[in-house]
């Protein structure tokens, strides 16, 4: 690796004083590689791999998790995520439109909502939905039981972000589009629904998919609501099994299940972003 660097450096050196720009870049890159390799070796040598494998990679325990980890835990995670996403999307759309409204109080309420819910940890919102809501409205059940509660909590968490994303998307649609629609006789509402929002969604598809990934991970906070055995999702499922077996393999398996979904989704987002970038050119 260092061989070509040397020849290039010495060939140019006599002509100019010190390192050339190219020489300096090579030297810097070489140093970075060295640090990286050293760090990997240090980690590999110092960690106790035997004990780690014992704690995290016991095939017998891993095998015992199937098929429940998929047909129950992953399925529930997906269900919680999607229902939260739908609630967040609908609520976010309403808040975005309120934020863009010409009616002052609507703008104001939407702004306050966004500031509050963007500033709170998701965990607090889960606790709030699990504890405060039943206290505040005794006798009133949130529809759908745990599923309804999770959808509400995740929806409340994501609506604030989605509202800002949707608003940005709507504002990114050129002004001429609304003017063309109005000049054809569309009412403002109809123009928004048939012309502007469909274009806005094309623009914000990547950030919305990102939000889906975030929600997928945030669904792990369901365990703060207290769930039945059938309602367990990946994190709770993994943690329960880990304490049963006194081994952390279930945590690793649960983690891999998350990655099974989040990595392809992230890949999809980058593809969409690249495509959108290309369309702009």
């Amino acid at each position: 690796m260092s061989h070509p660097t040397d020849t290039a450096g010495s060939a140019v050196a006599p002509r100019r004083k010190g390192l050339t720009r190219r020489g300096r870049r090579r030297l810097s890159r070489g140093a970075q590689y060295t640090v990286f390799v050293a760090a990997v070796i240090a980690l590999a040598v110092s960690a106790d791999w035997g004990r780690l494998r014992n704690q995290f990679a016991q095939t017998a325990i891993a095998r015992q998790m199937f098929p429940d980890v998929i047909v129950l835990a992953l399925k529930n995670t997906v269900l919680y995520t999607l229902s939260g996403f739908v609630v967040g999307l609908v609520l976010g759309m309403v808040i975005a439109l309120m934020r863009l409204s010409s009616v002052g109080p609507y703008r104001w309420v939407a702004g306050v909502y966004i500031e509050i819910f963007r500033g709170l940890p998701a965990l607090l919102i889960f606790i709030f939905v699990g504890v405060a809501v039943p206290l505040a409205f005794p006798g009133m059940e949130i529809v759908g039981g745990t599923y309804g509660k999770v959808a509400l909590a995740l929806g409340l968490v994501s609506a604030a972000y989605m509202a800002e994303t949707i608003r940005a998307g709507i504002q990114a649609v050129p002004r001429g589009q609304m003017e063309a629609a109005r000049s054809l006789g569309f009412s403002p509402t109809r123009a928004m629904v048939s012309i502007i929002i469909p274009q806005a969604f094309r623009i914000i598809l990547p950030p919305l998919t990102n939000e889906l990934v975030l929600l997928f991970k945030d669904s792990s906070m369901v365990l703060f609501l207290g769930v039945t055995l059938e309602e367990r999702e990946l994190s709770k499922f993994g943690r329960d099994l880990a304490s049963q077996t006194a081994n952390s393999t279930p945590i690793l398996v649960a983690g891999l299940c998350y990655l099974l979904v989040t990595i392809p989704l992230g890949f999809l987002v980058r593809r969409m972003e690249a495509k959108a970038q290309e369309a702009v050119k």
Binding site: A180, R182, S183, G185, S187, I195, P198, Q199
Partner: peptide, 20 residues
């Protein structure tokens, strides 16, 4: 105004077709 605008066609410098 929406009804009135239906009787008035407008053509813009930047076309403003609906790209989607």
């Amino acid at each position: 105004i929406d009804a009135a605008r239906r009787r008035i066609g407008m053509v813009f410098q930047q076309f403003n077709l609906f790209p989607h």
